[in-house]
Each structure stands twice: as C-alpha cells, then as structure tokens.
C-alpha cells in the first residue's frame, strides 16, 4: 500500500511537486506517467525518504519511510539503475544489500537467477549493459522480499524481450498481493504492464484512475459489411458514429454496447475493437500543454 497525501515540494520559488495525492492498492500495478521534468522522480524520492516533502505526507504500508525499522523488507526501491558502483560485481552489490536487509546469503543467487543474471553475478557492474543494470536493480529491490515495489523508469535501456520479462514479473508480483508503482515517460512502455495510471504534468496530477477507464475515452472502432446500414443502426441505438480516415466508424462508447446495437439491427460486423490508437493522444493531451521544454 502506497499513500501520497497532498504532497508538495518546493525548491525556492519553483514548485517541483504541487499538492499531489494518489494511492496504490495491494494487487495492482500503477504506472506513474509524465514527461521528463514533470515531478515523477521527486515524488518517488519523497516516497523513499530521500527528499523531505515541503508539506503533505507520503506513507508506505501506513508508515513514514523513516519509521520503517528495515525499509527494504517492506518496500523494494530502484530509483536509478545507473547509480551502481561499476567496480563491484553484481553479486557483491547484492551481498551488501543482503547484509542490510538481514536475509540469508542463498537469496543472492536466487535473485540473480530470477532476474536472469545467474551467469553475470561474478562480473563487475561496469561491464553490464543498462538493461543488465536494470535487472540488477530489480534484484536488489526484490531481495528483501517486500510487499511494495517502487521502480523509476525500469524499462529504460531494456530490450523488448526484457520489457516483456519485467511485465510478467511485475504482474506476478501484484497477483500475489504486492503493490507496484513504476514510472515512465513513455505510455507505450508500460501500457501492457499497468492496470492503474497516475499522470503528472508540471508537478500536478492531471489524470488518475484505472487504465481501462482512462482509455475508455478513445471509444470503439467498428466496420461492417454494409457501412451505411451499420451507421444507421448505431444511430437508431442512440449512438453517434463518426467516420474515420480509414473508413471505419468511431463510436464514443465501449465495444460491447456497439456490438449489441449491431446485433439488434442484424448488421454483420467484420471488425470491432477499442480505439487504442488514442493512447498516445490521451497522454499528450493530458500532458502536452503543461510540458515544460523550457525547464
């Protein structure tokens, strides 16, 4: 469980995080989304107890970070995979963390196994690719067997296969009752992984909720054998189909409603799907106007 309540962080007159509130429940994967410089990392650092909030409160499992006796056993955190000592081996990096966490040494090998670095544990981190450092960072986060995971840009530098692996790992973690919060500046990177979204722009939350609900605005694309008849049928059902440039009808509702309307009018549908071409549009419409290229 992650709770952020009215958190604000100021640097002089600059407000990096502005009255941000959200909650991540056990069993869910939340994507924390926003352009670079929107306040994602500052919010995550506040959650990790590294940066004090100017006002408001952030808690993990109901407690302030600094009140956790051994925080790594409650929450696994990776804020920057590049921030690892290049002169240490992968297993040595985990061993230092294992000592702090008080977990048995056998867990080091197991975690290297889990993240696919079993053969690379003896190599120095300086020889790792960014994707391998991400895996090592995730291994460090998982080492304490936490109930909460907080990962900043974990997909950064990972190949498609790595992103798919991470998606399964995080979905599995959540399916076992864990809470996951991961940030990204690319919606496409996380849209298949997350079930909730918190979107931030210029320090403020601009949208949050279930992924499906937020995407609902994209509507449904439908194509029939007899396109004019299908449009008439949809209109009779009280829907307002619009023609897309590709020749399909876009309807501002969910696919089930559209399918029922078509069936009631005995219209044969050859294609029907959620309009997820609008995913990036949603993201840009939510953040584009508050994106600060100047900052």
């Amino acid at each position: 469980m992650i709770t952020v309540e009215n958190v604000t962080r100021r640097y002089g007159s600059f407000v990096a995080v502005d009255n941000v509130s959200f909650e991540c429940a056990p069993g869910t994967v939340t994507g924390f989304l926003g352009p670079n410089g929107a306040g994602k990392s500052t919010t995550l650092r506040i959650l990790a107890g590294l940066t004090p909030a100017s006002s408001g409160r952030a808690t993990i499992s109901g407690r302030d970070y600094h009140a956790l006796p051994n925080p790594g056993r409650v929450v696994g955190i990776m804020l920057d995979a590049a921030a690892q000592h290049p002169g240490r081996t992968g297993s040595e990096t985990l061993r230092l963390a294992a000592t702090a966490l008080g977990v048995p040494r056998q867990r080091i090998g197991e975690m290297l196994d889990v993240v696919g670095l079993a053969d690379a544990g003896g190599r120095r981190v300086g020889q790792y690719s960014l994707g391998m450092r991400q895996r090592l960072g995730i291994a460090t986060a998982l080492l304490g067997d936490p109930q909460v995971l907080i990962l900043d840009e974990p997909a950064n530098g990972m190949d498609p296969e790595g992103i798919r692996w991470m998606r399964e790992l995080l979905r599995d973690f959540a399916a076992r009752g864990g809470t996951v919060l991961l940030s990204s500046h690319l919606l496409s990177e996380v849209q298949a992984t997350v079930d909730h979204l918190v979107v931030i722009g210029r320090g403020r939350i601009v949208a949050q909720g279930k992924l499906a609900d937020l995407l609902h605005g994209g509507g449904t694309l439908v194509r029939g054998i007899d396109q004019p008849a299908l449009a008439a049928a949809l209109q009779r059902a009280g829907l307002q189909p619009e023609q897309t440039s590709a020749g399909a009808w876009r309807v501002a509702t969910d696919p089930e409603t559209v399918a029922k309307a078509a069936m009631d009018a005995r219209q044969l549908v050859v294609e029907i799907r959620s309009d997820d071409a609008g995913l990036e549009d949603l993201f840009f419409s939510l953040t584009g106007d508050v994106d600060r290229h100047a900052a």
Binding site: N70, G102, V115, D145, P146, Q147, F173
Partner: peptide
C-alpha cells in the same frame, strides 16, 4: 494471499523465516 515473491517455482515454497530486524 501467498507472499508477493518473484516468479520462480522454488520460491513458491515457504521460505525460511527471515525475521525483520532494525539495522
């Protein structure tokens, strides 16, 4: 629920108790 643990079969086994101690 079972504990949220990484997805490898042998970790599904009950893990030896790892008491949480203040550092």
């Amino acid at each position: 629920r079972s504990r949220p643990t990484a997805s490898v079969a042998h970790l599904d086994e009950p893990y030896p108790a790892m008491p949480v101690r203040r550092i």
